[in-house]
């Protein structure tokens, strides 16, 4: 059913575009209502019939993926959910994808948040998206959530030397001393990789400045699209890679499925959200082309006359 819907809507959209292109060759302008209709179709079709396009990961995303992929099994990774509900639609999908990837590779994960509202989103992610795919993974052995602590950039500033000082226990009040993951982990310097997901302050930037730079710990960041351009100056020394917005999440999800076919059936909010986006972008580009064809046809005709 879904497939038929996908096919029909794609035929409608691209058939229509071809027809309009043909018209443009004859110098025919497109009524703006037709453009509106195409935009509506391009957005609505992938929402009604989930449609995903394979994304080929860009270098900045791939570096993060490769880092997780190539860390030896049993490495310890810290994932910090530094966002609030407003940022969640953009940032949560990538956080989920990277978490899954880490678990799949057998890395131990420490989850935390620098935002008070991030803790709820973190436990939502854990219980609804991340853990259901890994029934064999054990809390405190394979992963642990140490939650949120107030102090903004003070938190990374402290845990670079001592995690326990800021987080004496995990979210369930289990003392860190008794948690196996922390057997060999005293400070952030002992971690193999840190990824911060966010876009505000405190967030990725604070992790770079207070942990990555002084501690020499590799850092990856996942940020909202508008913040992404501001992160590029930190490449490649201070930041390994950047996931920007829904597109970054979609690229990561795509790469994850490509390398680990086991994830083919997982929920891929990033790819799903990119469906309407991609189609809409393609439609707009098609109309730019059509507009130019109309323009040049018109000009040639003028010259003839």
């Amino acid at each position: 059913m879904d497939n038929i819907g996908v096919i029909i809507s794609l035929i409608l959209i691209f058939g229509g575009l071809v027809a309009l292109f043909y018209g443009s060759l004859k110098g025919r302008e497109v009524d703006r209502r037709i453009i509106f209709l195409f935009i509506f179709l391009a957005v609505a079709a992938p929402i009604l019939f989930p449609m995903t396009f394979e994304e080929k990961a860009t270098q900045v995303v791939k570096s993060v993926f490769d880092k997780v992929e190539n860390l030896p099994e049993g490495s310890t990774v810290l994932l910090s959910f530094d966002f609030d509900p407003a940022m969640a639609p953009e940032v949560q999908p990538m956080a989920n994808a990277i978490s899954r990837h880490c678990l799949e590779k057998g890395h131990k994960i420490i989850f935390m948040s620098l935002w008070a509202t991030g803790q709820a989103l973190l436990s939502q992610s854990l219980s609804e998206s991340i853990l259901p795919g890994f029934p064999e993974k054990q809390n405190l052995v394979d992963y642990v959530s140490i939650g949120y602590k107030a102090g903004n950039e003070g938190v990374p500033n402290v845990i670079i030397t001592d995690i326990q000082k800021m987080f004496p226990t995990d979210v369930n009040s289990v003392p860190l001393d008794s948690i196996p993951i922390f057997d060999n982990i005293e400070s952030c310097k002992d971690l193999d990789f840190i990824v911060s997901f966010g876009g505000g302050k405190p967030g990725p930037k604070e992790w770079i400045l207070f942990v990555g730079d002084p501690g020499g710990v590799p850092i990856g960041v996942g940020v909202a699209a508008v913040v992404a351009p501001q992160m590029y100056p930190y490449l490649p020394d201070q930041v390994i890679g950047i996931l920007g917005g829904v597109k970054g999440a979609a690229e990561y999800e795509s790469e994850l499925i490509r390398v680990h076919p086991k994830f083919a059936d997982m929920d891929t909010p990033g790819l799903l959200m990119m469906g309407p986006q991609t189609l809409a972008h393609v439609v707009i580009m098609a109309f730019i082309v059509i507009g130019n064809v109309v323009f040049f046809r018109g000009r040639r005709r003028e010259k003839k006359e």
Partner: peptide
Amino acid sequence: VMSRMSLLIGRVDFLFGDFLGMI
């Protein structure tokens, strides 16, 4: 363009999801 499209995605989501229950 991307952020403008997400606004529309939100509205279409509402119409087909919350309103028509088609999603």
